[in-house]
Write a protein that binds this DNA or RNA. Structure first.
Lengths: 256, 256
DNA sequence: AAGCCTTTGTGAATACATGCACAAAGTCGC
DNA sequence: GCGACTTTGTGCATGTATTCACAAAGGCTT
């Protein structure tokens, strides 16, 4: 559900696999939670359970960062927190701007997870004059006309796009032109960006559709519903056979 | 960024690869957009560009559903929309309940993508008496005490958890006990569920951390910042050497 | 009706990810 | 100070996903 355009690996393959990178934040969260409970040391097995993965995978993931465990004992929580944070780039602050202050933008602005570790929201922007000037979570909403200035002056390096679908690509082009190379997109569109820019996508309706697929499968697969015509609670009208296609093709499609 | 517990494949391997399932909604959206523009037929190359993937992948993905294209021509948009919708289970309505009506829950309740195709929000629940009774997007917020009744009476099959982290597992246990087998989790915790229940996770701070990793990498990797001590704008204080570890280990970690 | 041109669908090659299972490395008790 | 016990780190086998490249299949033109 997430797309990114990967460039060729720079540097002398410190290359951490993408799948591992995606799990490091989960481990980090589990570690913070252990830390809060005063736990000083943790085994790969315990941490794996807390993170919801299996322990071999966890160990292999961590081995990409270096050899930070102690055999017979486990991992020292504080030290591992630091190493993962460092690897993820959380030992420095990242400046974030949120563009689009609708329901979702507001929710994001108020989200504690931002401020907590390494991320600082430095701007809320919107095109609607009704909203501009409003104060949300300690920030005043600014007009999107000032986008380029704000990005430049405040050193924004991550843009969060929470605009309507129609506006997203335009906003994206502008933030990229202003030098931003990391974009988190909540709008339901595929953004196109030049090489070297990372886009990650969060898309509610895609997640729901994936769940629907599995839910349907648990209930016996799609065929059963469509075979008998009124079975589904409120079935969408199946379109007729494909207008342009040959009959043969349609028969195959239905029977296969 | 998304976890699910997969069961053994049922049925006579109609098994569509998970990676493909995750892309079908993207294709579907691109197709809808073509449909709105009145396009009747599309080639794999065109559709692939619109969906942000390469065309071979698109064709292989579609081939898992059946043989719905016409060689020399392409795919008929309307027909393909129907086939993908059917495969994803969108030809029937899915009843959704949103639990937790904070900023995020409100944003979700108001999100158009829900109603649009196949999903119907049939309940907004919260534990806070201040919020219960409030009307949001045409629905009245109900008390979470009625969770089990609501799920049963209204046939909820997908639960969206948008509660604070601390409440999420408890809520999850309750919805699962009430028979829900698909959960979309926005709370920053790893939910544990019995076999057969699908959980998908949407996690803002994880996405940001992944972006930060790549952003840092573009800037030259983690080492440069930590080598000279004041380089990072506001570097977190690096913890001393691992208290319990032997000196040898630390030296390795730093020098390797 | 024959041949050219386009585009699908898929075998085969490659790349990436997961999980098992165990040797190596360390701790701790005696 | 030694041996038993624990837990890491990783080689290897397996499984999944991506990409290439092309034969087969259809439409369209003449």
């Amino acid at each position: 559900m997430t797309s990114r355009q990967t460039r060729t690996r720079d540097r002398s393959d410190r290359g951490i696999p993408e799948a591992t990178v995606a799990r490091l934040p989960v481990y980090l969260r589990a570690l913070h939670s252990l830390q809060d409970r005063g736990v000083a040391t943790v085994s790969s097995e315990e941490l794996a359970v807390a993170a919801g993965v299996n322990s071999a995978k966890l160990r292999k993931d961590l081995s990409h960062l270096g050899s930070y465990g102690t055999r017979g004992v486990g991992y020292e929580v504080e030290y591992l927190v630091y190493q993962i944070s460092r690897e993820l780039g959380l030992t420095q602050d990242w400046v974030v701007a949120i563009i689009g202050v609708g329901n979702l933008g507001r929710a994001l602005a108020g989200y504690g997870g931002f401020a907590s570790r390494g991320f600082r929201v430095a701007g809320l922007l919107d095109a609607d004059d009704e909203i501009v000037g409003e104060e949300i979570s300690g920030l005043t909403v600014e007009h999107i006309d000032r986008l380029e200035d704000i990005i430049g002056e405040r050193g924004v390096s991550i843009a969060v796009i929470a605009t309507p679908a129609g506006a997203a690509q335009g906003v994206c082009d502008r933030v990229v032109a202003s030098g931003v190379t990391s974009v988190l997109n909540f709008a339901p569109v595929v953004l196109s960006v030049p090489e070297g820019v990372d886009v990650r996508k969060v898309d509610l309706s895609i997640e729901l559709q994936i769940l629907a697929f599995h839910e349907q499968r648990k209930a016996g697969g799609p065929d059963e519903f469509d075979a008998l015509d009124g079975a589904a609670p409120k079935a969408a009208a199946p379109p007729g056979p494909p207008p342009g296609a040959t009959p043969t093709q349609y028969v195959e499609a239905v029977e296969a």
